[in-house]
């Protein structure tokens, strides 16, 4: 028996060693690219053309400075991306909570039908309606405006579904009853009782909406064409389309780093919420 136990312990030790080794290799594969990006963003064009080294150089601020004064409106692009992504996150979470609240708290004839309906439209990819969307936006004279990129996030079935799941567990109907007895109106009850209770879910979904809007390329590239409206992904595409061999490569890396690292930093600060939030509402056990 002790023989068998020892064997088992050895096998657990061996498997643990394998697991740690594989996990280390995978982590390396995930981080390697960003490490190279960081190194290269700190090196000058001349240094870059001499091949790769693993040690950072001193030209980071020079590269960034050149980038900001270069031909691409990078700072403007970041500001545009920030405006669109923040407003999308705000509107999407507020109205998705409201939609979930309607289905969760009230009883009305079409409730079941509307709930199923929202779930059914969840899978429609935005690309599939892009043609009609762009025509509509053109007819509304909203090309080169942020409105068609922000307002549509109000109808976000995935966010709605997450909020609904969270509400089922975390919004006691007694509280709403109590607010009504105290004479609060329905909108006020929603704003001052329900939304504060939903804060954790709103935070998680705000992050996800922000990131997906920040990274979005397909639809914005069809809507925005004037230079002072472009978002970062569009500028990245423009950089790719440019005759990049003539480019100062230090600037190219600085541009990529400028688009990637802010998200990484925010992610590292909020990672606990994000990783936990992936499954909390999306998957039923």
């Amino acid at each position: 028996m002790t023989e068998r136990e020892r064997k088992e312990r050895n096998s657990v030790h061996a498997r643990r060693a394998v697991a740690y080794t594989v996990l280390t290799i995978i982590s390396f594969l995930c981080l390697f690219w960003f490490y190279v990006l960081f190194i290269n963003a700190t090196r000058s064009n001349g240094e870059l053309s001499r091949g790769f080294t693993a040690i950072p150089s001193t030209h980071l601020f020079e590269n960034l400075n050149n980038l900001f004064h270069g031909s691409l409106p990078v700072l403007r692009g970041m500001l545009n991306s920030l405006i669109i992504a923040s407003l999308s996150a705000l509107l999407s979470t507020y109205f998705s909570t409201m939609t979930a609240y309607a289905i969760q708290v009230y009883d009305f004839k079409l409730k079941k039908f509307l709930f199923t309906f929202i779930l059914a439209i969840m899978m429609i990819p935005t690309q599939v309606t892009a043609l009609g969307f762009v025509q509509l936006v053109r007819n509304m004279k909203l090309l080169n405006s942020f409105i068609p990129l922000i307002v549509p996030t109000i109808a976000a079935p995935v966010t709605f579904f997450y909020m609904k799941q969270y509400m089922e567990a975390n919004l006691p109907s007694a509280l709403i009853e109590a607010a009504r007895i105290d004479g609060a109106g329905e909108l006020r009850t929603f704003n001052s009782i329900a939304t504060p209770l939903m804060r954790p879910a709103i935070a998680v979904q705000a992050i996800f909406t922000f990131v997906s809007s920040w990274n979005n390329y397909f639809i914005p590239s069809l809507v925005l064409s004037s230079d002072n409206k472009k978002t970062l992904p569009i500028l990245i595409a423009q950089l790719r389309a440019a005759d990049w061999l003539k480019f100062d490569m230090g600037q190219v890396y600085a541009m990529i780093a400028f688009s990637i690292f802010p998200v990484i930093i925010v992610y590292l600060i909020l990672s606990k919420n994000i990783v936990g939030g992936v499954t909390a509402g999306g998957v039923k056990e």
Binding site: M98, Y106, K111, T129, L136, E186
Partner: peptide, 30 residues
């Protein structure tokens, strides 16, 4: 109270119809 269920669904439905349903229909039409 329950009529508020419909009222709270208005933003979602209006935005869905304008920015998803109409584009979907015109895409198919095209």
């Amino acid at each position: 109270y329950n009529k508020w269920g419909y009222i709270f669904l208005i933003p979602f439905m209006v935005v869905f119809v304008v920015f998803q349903l109409i584009p979907l229909v015109t895409t198919i039409y095209n």
